[in-house]
Computed example of a mutant assay.
Amino acid sequence: MPLSFLRCVTVLAAVTSAACASAPPVTPSRDADLDATLSTIVKDTGVASVSVARIEDGRIVAVGAAGERAAGQPATPATRYNVASLTKPVSAEVVLRLASEGRFSIDDRMADAWVDPDIAGDPRHARLTPRFALAHQTGFPNWRGPSGLAFIADPGGAPGYSGEGYEYVAHYVQALTGARLDQQAQRLVFGPLGLRAIAFTATGTDALDIASSKREGHWHAPVIRATPSAADDLLTTAADYAAFVVSVMEGEGISPSLLAERRRVQADRRGEICAGIPADVCPDHAGFTLGWELFDFGGTTYYLHTGADEDAFAFVYWTPSTRSGTVILTNSPDGYRAVLPVLESIGADARFVGMLRAQASR
């Protein structure tokens, strides 16, 4: 099941001791120093494999991989991973770029183009907007239950992490534009950036380069969707996802007004984030923004997202002030064990890492 930030760091508690759209950033060849560091981390944590891409000054400066992508097969920077909920920032970016084209406003009523039959009889469906979907304020659960989709809270209220909210806005995009969200992603993001290893499904590609999953000592075939999801199971290399992050960081394809909206917390969670942690690592502002979680420390903003399913764990963060960030992909549910060691090894900001560590240890 995909994880929000807080649920991610709760899991981490177990291991705290242990360029322009037409010309994407040049991805360097495999970085030997990073490889060596990752090899040590894989050995120390027992994670099956980890693949990392580092961004500095708006460019990918290092890529590396260590461990096994399948039994007896080494992971390389070309290995693609299922990144679980790291799908959501990509979907959000597509929605924002469509809105920037003038296709719709993020405050438009989605009911004017799409209503899920399960909630058609609930008048609250008329209050749903793309903004609420991207900021986890739809009032939906994470996933619908056996009896279908239903509200568990009012739209626009307290945040509640929801994959269903992202699926809902994807239906809205298709109903309004006549194209699936993954098709719009190819047109607006993947194609212009020249990204060939990132996709919502493996249709028409070589599935052999996708990492298998290792859990409880046994290897399992990778999870590959036959139909795309806006919330889960994107396939990518660390380098391709990092190139996507660079594009987001540069604000490509997004109107100034929507960039301003993404720079602020849409759904406040500071009280929840800061509960029980030292004041010196508590962010001044924290919560969901459009497609990301946002943390502000004295004017320095960090954007973060995690992804976790039974076969994978993934983590990404970036900060616009230094135009830096890191993508961490793994092929096992205990991949969270690698996150803090990777961040510490690359010298990530001490206050940001301190917040993660403090939340993980509470």
Rank of each mutant, 00 (worst) to 15 (best):
D118K: 03
H305F: 08
M1G: 12
F104W: 12
T237R: 01
E164V: 06
G347M: 08
L259G: 01
R323N: 04
G178R: 05
Q359N: 15
D209L: 11
D284F: 11
A358G: 06
V63Q: 06
G253Q: 07
E101C: 13
A70S: 14
S212P: 07
R124D: 05
L96T: 10
R80N: 06
S162L: 08
L343Y: 04
R357Q: 09
P228H: 01
F297Y: 05
A243R: 14
E272D: 15
I328R: 03
V245F: 10
V245L: 13
W114R: 00
T37M: 12
A133S: 15
E261T: 11
R262W: 08
R54P: 08
V169L: 06
P117Q: 09
A70V: 04
E344N: 15
F5S: 10
A267E: 06
A113E: 12
Y168E: 04
L234H: 06
E344G: 12
E272H: 13
V353Q: 06
R362V: 13
S105H: 14
A175K: 05
A211T: 12
V245A: 09
G325M: 07
S361W: 07
V63C: 09
L38N: 05
G145M: 03
T227A: 12
S332H: 01
S49T: 05
D240Q: 05
S51T: 14
R131A: 13
L290T: 01
W114V: 01
A21P: 15
F5V: 14
F352D: 14
V281S: 14
G157N: 00
D296Q: 02
A32N: 09
R351C: 07
S212W: 15
G217I: 01
G251K: 00
C274Q: 10
L176Q: 01
L34C: 11
C274H: 09
G204T: 03
A158S: 15
F140C: 00
R351E: 14
A179S: 14
L356K: 00
G307D: 06
L188P: 01
R269F: 12
G157M: 01
Y166T: 10
L188S: 00
P123Y: 10
T227E: 15
G121K: 11
R215V: 07
G276Q: 10
A242V: 03
A36I: 06
P117F: 10
P141S: 12
E101I: 09
C274S: 13
A13E: 13
A53K: 09
I198W: 06
A99T: 10
E261S: 09
P123K: 04
S100T: 11
W219R: 00
L96K: 03
P74L: 06
A19M: 14
V115F: 03
W292M: 11
T10D: 15
D122I: 00
F5K: 02
F313I: 09
A120K: 12
T177Q: 04
Y241A: 08
V327D: 07
F244A: 00
P320F: 09
A133W: 00
A242M: 12
P228Y: 03
R54L: 15
A314W: 11
A207N: 11
R262N: 13
F140M: 04
D232C: 04
G194M: 08
G347R: 09
H218V: 15
P228C: 01
G276F: 04
E164K: 03
V189W: 08
V90R: 02
P141I: 02
S361I: 10
R269W: 08
L304F: 14
